[in-house]
Design a protein around this nucleic acid. Structure first.
Lengths: 359, 359
DNA sequence: GTGAAAGCGCTAACAT
DNA sequence: ATGTTAGCGCTTTCAC
């Protein structure tokens, strides 16, 4: 049933050692002909190495632990896929554990992974919990993928919120808007802070004055976007555009504009952030800045395999840039065409949340 | 650095076998004193079993393979969480692999899992691919969690589509509707067929006549729901409600009703199916029948652990019932209150897609 | 360039 | 109740 090196050795008529040399990608010299023959036999039998045996020998399992808050958080699956897809190219697998934001469960997860042989751990978490203490006992590589750490953390992959906000603002300015409202996330969230600064700096770079009347804070939820927009509309008769720090609040903003008897995008243009699924399904489709979750996952995997190869060496924080997805909510002329292009691009790159009509 | 059974045996002055018997929780008889002594030594040295060695020997790892189409498909993460949460209670972990609907990748995934010792495989797939041939070589338990197989499959967990459709229809009839349109999924999809039959039988059970003019077929996508509704409205002046076979088409239906100058729910009530995230975010919030994905995952895990314990014994197909989530799109009086209750319930049970404002 | 053989840490016959 | 021993599948010296 399971194919072993022994069987391959017998069939290919070589010794196990030679077969092992070929099939374990060792750089030990083996003649081309031999290599080919062994590869062919292995292929035809569908050989897959027994990882338990290999790791018993080498002390390495081709497995990386992935500790996530909650697989059901909307941004987690694409991060995990990014990790998995990259790992797969190097015959690594991921072992997924949820912590449900519970420090005790997180400790537990780390312990579990220390016992279960994994070669490294990728933390996909929005909150920094009990990791630090336990990780001192852990002499293997680890990487953080996250969005919310306020403090700078080594070996981490984060979105470039500052850049993303500037994309949104510049797009609106390009479209002729001068009075651009901003609905921020709650205070204390690092990403909200960075997006705010990005908004301010982008305005300044385009010669526009910052006006605190144009800034409101929400709590990321739909309702807060709705309320914030009502305030903005009331205080700023001349406001023609709103940039919301996430898509849910952008959605609230659109409803508020519509309930005020105005039109999106004709009277007020709206740009969101994150590229959640709703941003594509909702009409008007919401122009938004993508959170580069898939790429973040990929990069984290890349980092950890790199460390696995070169021995643990610390990296700095790596920022990943999202892109502006031009759709309908800000009335850009090229909207339709651009959406099509983006769809094509993202489909082939598998970066975007799947909205297939799979039921 | 790493403590082995051998070292413990030497220090405790017993043989490796005795030490193994104690430390592997075998039920082999060992004297209480010996057991205690060995436990003490192991504890003091911080012994952790080498899982690779153990599984090389026993051919068992506390690991279950989870083969999914694509983690990014909207229904997959909750199924996976259901599996993980159940497994966790028994110290099992899941090893996740994506096939991207590619039969070759699926074969590969199975082979990978055969030699990575996993104790069983859970298939989370909407299409039946290359599994059957390979699974004959596989003598360990496996379970299918799926939605689309047309043929009856042993060891599988599926949603009860027939029942779900009847929930929707009965709710509409209870609200006084007599002419209820139905937008089905595409022909050839098992779940679409079952939902249609559920619709028909539920009507009959309430003494209402089936009228083929009230039935349209979509392709699960938003647009098809929109088009189907335009047709339904045109052909049936007396239609007061629409049941759509998924939430995306229900959304299209709502837009079509609104574009026709009518109101949802005042003129036409709409019920969806699946309980996708949009069904809660969109206004009016969409009354829908939940696809019991989390429960399906849990049940699959339960099944496989059961088989692991009792030896592989085949089970029949298990149908899991979803529930009707009453929201705003059909104007039920108790809507608001009911939504609150459901929210509370689902939050505590962790069944529903997370729509937390986590950014 | 290839083969023989040892052994990673553990469990499970088989002995005693 | 405890000990001896073989061997899971693989990698890696060490020979040739």
């Amino acid at each position: 049933m399971t194919v072993t090196l022994n069987e391959i050795a017998e069939i290919a008529d070589f010794s196990v050692s030679t077969v092992s040399r070929v099939l374990s990608n060792s750089d030990y010299p083996v003649s081309a002909a031999t290599r080919q023959k062994i590869m062919d036999v292995a292929e035809s039998l569908g050989y897959k190495p027994n990882i338990a045996a290999r790791s018993l020998r080498t002390n390495r399992t081709n497995t990386v632990g992935i500790i996530v808050d909650d697989l059901l958080s909307p941004f987690v699956p694409p991060i995990v896929r990014g990790v998995q897809d990259y790992l797969k190219g190097f015959d690594y697998l991921g072992m997924l554990i949820n912590t449900d934001f519970d420090p005790d469960l997180e400790k537990d997860a780390i312990r579990t992974l220390i016992n279960r042989p994994v070669d490294g751990i990728i933390f996909v978490e929005s909150l920094h919990n009990a990791t630090s203490e336990l990780l001192t006992e852990w002499d293997k590589p680890y990487v953080f993928v996250h969005r919310l750490f306020s403090s700078f953390v080594k070996n981490s992959v984060v979105p470039d919120d500052y850049y993303g906000a500037s994309l949104a603002v510049n797009h609106l300015v390009d479209l002729g808007h001068r009075r651009i409202g901003y609905i921020n996330g709650p205070e204390g969230w690092h990403s909200a802070m960075r997006r705010l600064v990005g908004y301010q700096d982008a305005l300044a770079a385009r010669g526009l004055e910052f006006d605190s009347d144009l800034v409101q804070s929400g709590d990321w939820a739909f309702e807060s976007g709705y309320d914030a927009t009502q305030n903005l509309l009331e205080d700023n008769q001349d406001m023609t555009a709103i940039f919301a720090a996430n898509d849910l609040m952008a959605l609230g903003a659109i409803y508020a504009v519509q309930d005020a008897g105005a039109s999106v995008p004709d009277d007020v243009a709206v740009v969101g952030y994150d590229n959640r699924e709703i941003a594509r399904i909702f009409r008007p489709q919401i122009t938004t800045v993508s959170l580069p979750v898939y790429e973040m996952g990929r990069t984290a995997a890349e980092l950890i395999l790199q460390q696995l190869k070169n021995g643990s060496e610390e990296t700095n924080e790596i920022k990943i840039k999202g892109e502006l997805l031009i759709r309908e909510s800000c009335g850009a002329d090229e909207a339709e065409q651009a959406v099509e292009e983006l769809d094509a691009a993202t489909t082939s790159r598998r970066i975007i949340l799947n909205v297939n009509p799979t039921e």
